[in-house]
């Protein structure tokens, strides 16, 4: 029973982890159709923000929850103004530009901090005992953060005027512009918000995975698979795809080992996209956000 409970928690964490690394991309790619290949690097930058801040004596909670999203959000803003805003609707160009951006970020971070940064930050919460088993308290905290984050995004989209205008712009930019909305500004805000969420995710994951200049490469594939499997609705899509793929991955990893866990995740995504080419929310929960 203890094993079942602690395993269930572990799988829940796997799901939360997937949702966390995908949410920023879901906002940028899911809402704006911008293929941001530098998404992994936004996560990486979030991680480095936390490392640099804590090395300079900043409280780790403040660094993770406030500084990381703030810094990466501002970087996202600059990137959008200087690069992305000229590329809306030009998918291949965006792809190349953000890929270049990703290499640039990796290069800059490597030359500033070195290839293997000394990151002696450890999870700021101890272990939690469940019967004979112990779980990481920090992983429980992450599950909680992801739930709060999803609720926040939902409330923002559903109940604020920014959310309404943003949804309108994503649905039909020309019509929104006719109604007097500055779509360029909406894109800017949405992109920086997406970047900020990625930064938050990167900052929160830094104590668990450590940070390396190329750690983004590990996240990007999973994030894209989750977002594309989820379909066009940001929240319902990301959540349902994370539950499905993270669940399959967690169970298979426990039963057979991590290699088959990854294989099972990819296999599920392929089958899913074959049956539902527009993702889960293309078929179910169509009216969701």
């Amino acid at each position: 029973m203890d094993l079942f409970f602690s395993l269930a928690l572990q799988i829940l964490y796997g799901i939360a982890n997937l949702a966390l690394i995908s949410l920023g991309l879901a906002i940028v790619f899911g809402m704006m159709r911008v293929i941001n290949l530098a998404h992994g690097e936004f996560l990486m930058l979030g991680g480095y923000t936390v490392v640099v801040a804590t090395n300079n004596g900043v409280n780790i909670w403040f660094a993770m929850l406030i500084l990381a999203p703030l810094v990466v959000g501002i970087i996202g803003l600059i990137v959008e103004r200087c690069l992305i805003q000229w590329l809306y609707g030009r998918m291949i160009d965006t792809l190349l530009a953000t890929w270049g951006l990703s290499l640039l970020f990796i290069g800059i971070i490597t030359s500033v901090f070195g290839a293997s940064t000394s990151t002696v930050i450890s999870p700021p919460l101890g272990a939690v005992t469940i019967g004979d088993y112990t779980s990481s308290g920090y992983e429980l905290f992450l599950i909680f953060v992801v739930i709060v984050l999803l609720i926040l995004v939902y409330l923002t989209l559903k109940f604020t005027s920014l959310g309404l205008v943003a949804r309108a712009t994503m649905q039909n930019a020309d019509m929104a512009a006719c109604l007097g909305i500055s779509t360029s500004r909406i894109y800017m805000v949405t992109f920086s918000l997406g970047a900020a969420v990625s930064g938050l995710a990167g900052g929160l994951l830094a104590p668990i995975t450590g940070v390396l200049p190329n750690i983004g490469v590990i996240y990007i594939a999973k994030a894209f698979i989750t977002v594309i499997s989820g379909g066009s609705a940001i929240l319902a899509g990301t959540t349902s795809a994370s539950v499905l793929l993270g669940g399959v991955n967690g169970i298979m990893s426990y039963v057979t080992g991590p290699t088959f866990g990854e294989v099972a995740l990819l296999f599920t995504a392929i089958i899913l996209l074959r049956l539902m080419p527009t993702g889960i929310t293309g078929r179910f929960f169509r009216k969701s956000q």
Partner: peptide
């Protein structure tokens, strides 16, 4: 147990 070089989530293994 064997892990591909890009695995970062070791949770299930730690439970095992």
């Amino acid at each position: 147990e064997f892990f591909p070089l890009d695995v970062t989530n070791f949770g299930p293994t730690i439970k095992k």
